[in-house]
Design a protein around this nucleic acid. Structure first.
Lengths: 347, 347
DNA sequence: GTGAAAGCGCTAACAT
DNA sequence: ATGTTAGCGCTTTCAC
């Protein structure tokens, strides 16, 4: 059914190797007219190279793996779309993997992809340690980690791409402080990831810089809630925070991401507290929905598309055998002020 | 580096074909002890079959293609996650393709996947015609179309999976009629898809059945808005509908999906109209966010996970050469009543 | 500038 | 019950 290089070669009156050379852009090795004849033959026969054969021979695939916590989260959905577009641009496919942040699944997935000949992976689960992926990395896996910065024990070949969380939390905290808030909550999940830890630190230092009055209120889900999804986490946290004594109740909440922030807003409403008026809420990411909900969400935007483009560039560069730069790439986050934040109630 | 069946064979003291037989579950062809020895050798050597070689030989991949309009839409994000889980269960990978509903891109994608050896695709863009995919389908592509029902010109091998849109719109319309609404808007996009057309028809017939008083108000984006995303569409439509003369203004709106419904709510608020009180809004899908926004969204739920599971089953069955059933599989939608619908204002 | 030939790792006849 | 062998379609030395 499908044409092979032999048929193309025959149709063009050349040898298979010449066809192969045309296929691989080794133009210098043949006359322009020969090349043209081959091209025409390909066209006429509707020739499409067989990837499996190519890969078997060269050991390389034209696909990259994408490991996200879950594309059901709109943020990762958007990222996946941009990554796919960027990969397509470079003639690569994207293999989708939802790990739900389970290191075990992640490890299996990577081993699997590796065995399938994939040599480039974009990992979005920001694990604190990459130990579970040490083997393939040592064997030359081109790994780009999103939403994570380099850690002391990281293999040197891994490139990390993330927003600058210190700047991000600072933007958020200063916005809140500027509105007069002093008791500010920080809601995060039990699952330890690099960027959450950084945001946590950034938050504390921003409040600290604001002087003694500012009072951080950390809400951290116990291990009990490790499996809750982000929105549910915001909900649970808020229900608990709002039940506290007024003097210990935050007037503003910084959530680890927009889905959590949405959960915070929902729980506030359920408790009769109007988000954006009685309780200021701020998220991270700027998912599409942040501008559609009520109140619309003030949030720290991540330059998603650019991160995706850069991620693909880095993976492909590493795949081309170029010296890995390693380290971290910090992008500038941007504060998007909407309706969910406002002055302290009663002032 | 990676072990081959030859090395495993040598280590186990058998021939490569026996190893291959073990690999392919042809247990009957060897003694249990032989099998065991091979298994042990594999384990010891950390053997992983080479997919490329396998595929080159058999012509089959263990991957299925997923073509969605865009995973940036939370509904398709969730679907993608469930599909990936279901595929994994059956030892298959998922290749992600965002077509943005562009038939041209869709065609390119499918041709590309076909050339890569993929023989099974789950298509979620519900085009009215499958003409642009006629070639691969004729060549044996196992195609399962989601969110679409069989059309007269469809190739007979295509299986369609969808909710029953007649039931769905009926549920929605009856809910609205039961609340006393008579002027009910229907907001849909210019892009023609099978299920939108069906919902359109279902909506009209439901209102028709309610008698003369019920008055459908169709808002259909002109071609100008063909590229708007769903939420933006709801926004534009609502701004226009609410600007109409009170006697021609709908008191309730049925949106083509939840994202559009969210846009409707946002535009209503911007116009000083309180969704859920002054304007009832109902969507389709029941995305995760439908329970998080304010007002929480009344919607017609699609049994997403089940659709994904069934889709994978059908693709793999077709891939195994079983007679394709073709036709349509209609699943039962379910009305989820939340805050965005209520009695007609002023009654 | 072009061609011949070997072989990537696996499967499936076909032997034995 | 197990082994031998011939490719699947391509790339890549190495000849010419």
């Amino acid at each position: 059914m499908a044409a092979t290089i032999y048929q193309v070669a025959q149709a063009a009156g050349v040898s298979p190797s010449t066809v192969s050379n045309v296929l691989n852009g080794r133009d210098g090795r043949m006359l322009p007219q020969t090349r043209k004849r081959v091209l025409q033959a390909m066209d006429r026969l509707g020739y499409r190279p067989n990837r499996a054969a190519r890969q078997l021979r060269t050991g390389r695939t034209r696909a990259i793996g994408l490991v996200v916590p879950s594309v059901a989260n709109p943020f990762w959905g958007s990222f996946a779309r941009h990554l796919e577009a960027a990969a397509l641009e470079r003639d690569h496919h994207v293999l989708l993997c939802n790990s739900e942040r389970d290191p075990r699944r992640e490890q299996d997935y990577v081993a699997e992809l590796w065995a399938d000949g994939l040599r480039g992976i974009v990992l979005c689960t920001s694990p604190t340690s990459l130990a579970h992926l040490a083997d393939p990395i040592a064997d030359g896996l081109a790994l780009v980690a999103i939403d994570r910065t380099a850690q002391p024990d990281d293999p040197s070949s891994v490139t990390n791409i993330s927003i600058d969380n210190v700047v991000g939390t600072r933007l958020a905290a200063d916005h809140l402080l500027g509105l007069g808030h002093r008791r500010i909550g920080f809601v995060s999940g039990a699952v330890r990831t690099v960027n959450r830890a950084e945001r946590h630190r950034g938050f504390l230092s921003a409040l600290h810089a604001a002087g003694d009055e500012a009072e951080p209120i950390i809400w951290d889900s116990g291990d009990d809630y490790a499996d809750l999804d982000a929105a549910e986490l915001g909900r649970t946290a808020t229900a608990e925070l709002l039940a506290r004594d007024p003097s210990e109740r935050p007037t503003a909440v910084l959530a680890m991401n927009d889905m959590t922030a949405l959960g915070v807003c929902a729980a506030a409403r359920e408790a009769g507290v109007v988000p954006g008026r009685d309780l200021s809420v701020i998220g991270f990411d700027d998912i599409v929905l942040a501008g559609l909900t009520w109140p619309t969400l003030t949030t720290v935007r991540q330059p998603l598309e650019r991160m995706a483009t850069v991620a693909v560039e880095h993976v492909l560069r590493a795949l081309d055998g170029e010296e890995p730069n390693g380290g971290s790439l910090l992008m500038r986050p941007e504060l998007v002020v909407r309706e969910s934040t406002g002055p302290v109630p009663g002032t």
